[in-house]
Amino acid sequence: MTTPQTDPLSRPVAFVTGGTGGIGAATCRALARDGHDVVLTYHSNTAKAEQLVSELESAGARAEAVRLDLTDAEAVTVEVERVVADLGDLKTVVHASGPFVDQIYISQLEPAKFTSHVDAELNAFFHVVRASLPSLRRTAGSITAVTSVAVRRFPVKDILSGAPKGGIEVIVRGVAREEGKFGIRANSVAPGVVEDAMGVALIESGNFDPASIEITKRLTPLQRFGLSHEIAEVVAFLASDRASYVSGQTIDVDGGYNT
């Protein structure tokens, strides 16, 4: 009997971390639209995850939501292996997970807080990559990490975003170099401020005051902040065959902020 891994009529399987976040959810929708079945992970918002699964299923995709601690390497490996056994090998992995990022000066940052963010972002991504590579080798699949333009144009007080995501981009380039012989592609998408994703939380928490908002918009050639679906479209492109010769790259999706 034909297996899900080799059936030419089967839909490719996407594994999306942080699927209930603004960019993560938009990415799930874009991948489902483009023909993927989607397994999304989330941290705590079960109601939002279930609602998104229903939406994706209504669009014709098989969809699952899994509450998963990405800092737990064993749990990540077990879950990836379960998905492969149930749905077939992964074709697409998107890492869009990440905690809320306080804006704080390096000189005022407690070591424990920095370590926590490195664990929740950099270590979590490593766990996802390591667990996914055996399956991705069999499909010549792709990995796309959502990072931040702060890696290249550092905004003051954004160390908790820039430092871990800089490490993620190094892992992405490493995967592109080491795994290309298996047909695996790896890339990063680096957003600027996204007003319907992390930008909302930054504004509501007071980390991003009106003056900072206006200054950042003036420094952005398009004179506005981004939207989650604009980031997701670039992620979906990199996951598609249209990007079949793109690997080891970081695409800034920031309205020209890093120009």
Rank of each mutant, 00 (worst) to 15 (best):
A239K: 01
A140F: 00
A201I: 07
G162N: 08
R153D: 14
A201L: 15
D119S: 15
A65T: 12
D102F: 12
G256V: 03
V234C: 05
Q223R: 15
E79Y: 00
H95V: 12
K157V: 04
A14R: 05
P134C: 05
V16A: 06
G88E: 08
G248K: 01
T147H: 09
S132L: 01
V200L: 13
I203M: 08
G88Y: 03
G256N: 04
A243F: 04
S240N: 13
L238P: 00
I168F: 07
R33S: 11
P210N: 06
G18T: 05
S107C: 04
G248M: 00
V146E: 02
G183I: 05
T144D: 04
G24C: 08
V13T: 12
E50N: 13
A150K: 01
V193E: 11
G22D: 08
V235Q: 08
V175R: 15
E214L: 10
K165H: 14
A49F: 07
D37C: 01
V151K: 06
E195Q: 15
T17F: 10
V93G: 05
A47C: 00
D72N: 14
R218H: 11
R242P: 00
A236Y: 01
A63R: 04
V83F: 02
R137G: 05
G166M: 10
R82C: 00
L238F: 01
A211S: 12
Y245N: 08
A26G: 09
G256D: 01
G19R: 02
A73E: 14
E214F: 04
E214T: 12
A176V: 07
R173E: 14
C28S: 10
F208K: 07
I104C: 13
K181G: 15
A163Y: 12
K165Q: 13
T115M: 07
R177Y: 04
N258R: 03
T71K: 14
R224N: 06
P12S: 09
G166R: 09
V53E: 09
S240G: 15
L122W: 11
A61M: 04
H36V: 03
V94K: 08
T17P: 08
G255N: 05
P134D: 01
